[in-house]
Design a protein around this nucleic acid. Structure first.
Length: 484
RNA sequence: CGGGACGUGGCGCAGCCUGGUAGCGCACAUGCUUGGGGUGCAUGGGGUCGGCGGUUCGAAUCCGCCCGUCCCGACCA
């Protein structure tokens, strides 16, 4: 195969150039495309279908946990954004502003929301009067704009889609419990639906959300060894309620500020799916969020339109009735071999081949995308067998990703080993930390690694020795990694 | 935002150094053929060379500015 053929027919191998592989895959699998505006991408139908499936699974969980959806404005008056000092300081470098409406200059410029705490805080102050109004458990699905300097499809774009939850509670304890409940929800969602295992814990103060009292996060490991934040949950304490004057009369008839949380997951998770599960042949979508779960490829030979095609149509109908997202590709302009490669690249979990030989034998050949294992399944048994196979693929992808994560969590014996591991092996390095931000900064400068999470579990967070950087007393165990 | 590279039909590239108005492979269209791992053959359509300006009789080619993309950093979901 010459260079030209290679470039047309397949993507750059993952092991050869991970970054190039990722970017090519995003385009060739038609997940997203660039636009004339810097850093702004189109999420194409195939990519958006994944996001819709993510939304469906996440939205169901958020609602099951008692939340309701609402929608707040795209614009936020500058004065609102400025009310919480740390918040505005953290976000101002990346806010886009509207200064003109129609022909007229605005008296006050409007921020295109980089996050919605400010506008939502303002409205909550209006709505909340009594402890009887609490808790407020609201979520919104929205688009966000952050004027990033460096962008990459799905992982960092100027505009992105997310859900942001904003809750208010009577007590600090309730607020903290909500923050942790969402953190656990995110972890369960990622692992169950995305088949992406995550580490969860709290962030260091350096890494926390601008305006939060404490930030918690889940972190996944991409197959190039870099970490990616999959979701965050913030305990806002009373920072915003004091800034926006969100007060309620408590059970003792005293005025108090509410305790708040906010939390979000974004379209970045689509990027994680690509980077965690993809291989040299392309995407490998977990069945639970795959736009198409099974594709039927008829083998056109002889009088296939009278034999194979009806069998394929019947299989399609039976699988659809069984709740499988199935597609029959009976196009004649592409050969079976071409379709095999195409659907592998696009990440379809199962391929179902039906040819003249199969029709005679009353069966179909089912091929798994994850293992490429082939299995002959009697045609009438497809609706029963395919869901089971999809579940197996889902489980296998998670199992592979978890094995990779576990194999790439290492303990550092000393600082030399710490640097060595981050430089050559990547992954997470678990090490005792003194808790000093100066130490954290030095580590970042020297190794490009940041603290991704500090485990919440008491035992897991117990440092085994002195700080890996300064040798002073270890106050916590932290997971360090280079991150996206 | 710093350091580096790149921008030529949809994709991947050649041409640029040594100016003379574009070429290859794939994709696309039509026909036949083939079909269980990107079938084979034939015919055909499509670009004015990222944008703007300059030098020149003449610019894809030389010069300047701008825009965009990628890589390595700083910042961030």
């Amino acid at each position: 195969m010459n260079e030209n053929e290679r470039q047309v027919r397949q993507i750059t191998p993952k092991s050869e150039d991970f970054s190039k592989w990722y970017l090519e895959l995003v385009q060739k699998a038609e997940l997203a495309d660039y636009t004339p505006m810097k850093g702004m991408m189109v999420i194409r139908p195939h990519g958006y279908a994944v996001w819709e499936n993510i939304q469906r699974g996440l939205d169901a969980r958020i609602k099951a946990a008692g939340h309701v959806n609402a929608y707040f404005p795209l614009f936020i008056p500058e004065s609102f954004l400025k009310k919480e000092a740390e918040h505005v300081q953290g976000f101002s470098p990346e806010v886009a502003w509207v200064t003109i409406g129609g022909q007229e200059d605005l008296e006050e410029r409007l921020a295109v929301r980089p996050t919605s705490e400010a506008i939502i805080g303002h409205m909550y102050a209006k709505w909340i009067k009594s402890y009887r109004d609490l808790p407020v458990l609201v979520n919104q699905w929205a688009n966000i704009v952050r004027w990033e300097k460096v962008t990459r499809p799905f992982l960092r774009t100027t505009e992105f889609l997310w859900q942001e939850g904003h809750t208010c509670h009577e007590t600090a304890e309730e607020g903290e419990a909500e923050t942790l409940r969402i953190l656990a929800l995110y972890k369960e969602f990622c692992e169950t639906e995305l088949a992406v295992p995550v580490l969860s814990g709290r962030k260091s103060l350096r890494e926390k959300f601008a305006g939060a009292q404490m930030t918690y996060a889940i972190e996944a490991l991409m197959s190039d060894g870099k970490a990616l934040q999959m979701g965050t949950s913030h305990d806002l304490g009373q920072h915003f309620s004091k800034a926006f004057d969100i007060k309620f009369e408590d059970r003792n008839q005293k005025l108090q500020y509410v305790w708040q949380t906010s939390w979000g997951m974004t379209t970045r998770t689509v990027g994680a799916l690509i980077m965690v599960h993809g291989d040299d042949s392309g995407l490998r979508f977990p069945p639970n969020v795959a736009p198409t779960q099974a594709v039927i490829v008829p083998i056109p030979a002889g009088n296939w339109k009278e034999t194979v095609l009806p069998a394929a149509r019947a299989a399609e109908a039976a699988l659809a009735a069984a709740g499988v997202r199935v597609r029959l590709d009976a196009r004649e302009e592409f050969t079976p071999g071409w379709k095999f490669s195409e659907y592998e690249m696009r990440g379809v979990p199962l391929r179902i081949e039906i040819g003249p030989r199969d029709v005679k034998a009353g069966q179909a050949i089912v091929v798994r995308r994850d293992t490429r294992a082939k299995e002959a399944v009697p045609l009438p048994a497809l609706p029963a067998r395919v869901p089971g196979l999809l579940a197996e693929v889902q489980a296998e992808l998670f199992s592979q990703a978890r094995a990779f994560l576990e194999a790439n969590i290492r303990d550092a014996a000393d600082y030399a080993g710490f640097k060595e591991t981050l430089e050559n092996l990547r992954g997470f390095v678990r090490a005792p930390w003194c808790g000093d931000e100066a130490c954290e900064d030095k580590i970042k400068t020297e190794t490009m690694a940041t603290i991704r999470v500090i485990p919440l579990d008491e035992a897991a967070a117990q440092p085994a020795g002195p700080c890996v950087r300064c040798g002073r007393e270890g106050k916590a165990v932290a997971y360090f990694a280079r991150a996206y």
